[in-house]
């Protein structure tokens, strides 16, 4: 498992989800996306790292990780979609929203964001059938009461590029 010189996936993600960030830092978020696209096993490794951050007990770390996940879905293409579309990863999201697992200890903000993301992918990526299976299971369980208001036409439009720093 060769790593690119300099920053690794883990170091980009640590910076992008650092709880001491005052706001979402798109330089690091896009850096993580670019690193995924550079590495042979980028998608496989990155979803494992993301799942861990999304399950963070610190709300701000988890929220930033979900923003990173959303950006990766927009910028890292089918290889990344295929990894997210496996139950192995989807189960990690389900654990966060389900009261049988971590749901009781997780903030509503994090749970809502996960449900919005899952729903938006069922619309934007109908070929990823396991995402639909996971989402419909959450509905059957009553964890999702009704589809969230997500503008489907905007779900997979690439994220904005990092803003240049002021000189």
């Amino acid at each position: 498992m060769a790593e690119a010189e300099g920053e690794s996936l883990e170091s980009w993600l640590n910076k992008a989800t650092n709880p001491s960030n005052r706001q979402e830092d798109w330089e690091y978020i896009i850096g993580f996306c670019d690193q995924i696209n550079k590495e042979l096993e980028g998608p496989q490794i990155s979803v494992r790292l993301l799942a861990h951050k999304i399950q963070s007990p610190q709300e701000w770390e988890a929220v930033q990780a979900l923003t990173v996940l959303e950006a990766c879905m927009k910028n890292c293409g089918r290889r990344f979609h295929n990894e997210v579309g496996k139950f192995r990863f989807l189960n990690e999201l389900i654990k966060v929203v389900s009261p049988k697992y971590l749901g009781d200890r997780v903030s509503e903000k994090v749970k809502t964001k996960i449900i919005e993301l899952l729903y938006s992918w069922t619309v934007a990526l109908p070929e990823e059938s396991k995402i639909k299976d996971a989402y419909h299971m959450l509905k059957r369980q009553g964890i999702v009461q009704s589809d969230p208001p997500v503008p489907a036409d905007r779900t997979l439009i690439p994220s904005p590029p990092p803003r240049p720093k002021n000189p």
């Binding site: 496996k86 139950f87 189960n91 389900i94 389900s98 396991k130 996971a134 369980q141």
Partner: peptide
């Protein structure tokens, strides 16, 4: 083969 066995092992979380 690897992909097939991965597919077989990929299950939705029991609820």
């Amino acid at each position: 083969l690897g992909e097939e066995s991965e597919e077989r092992d990929d299950h939705l979380l029991p609820m």
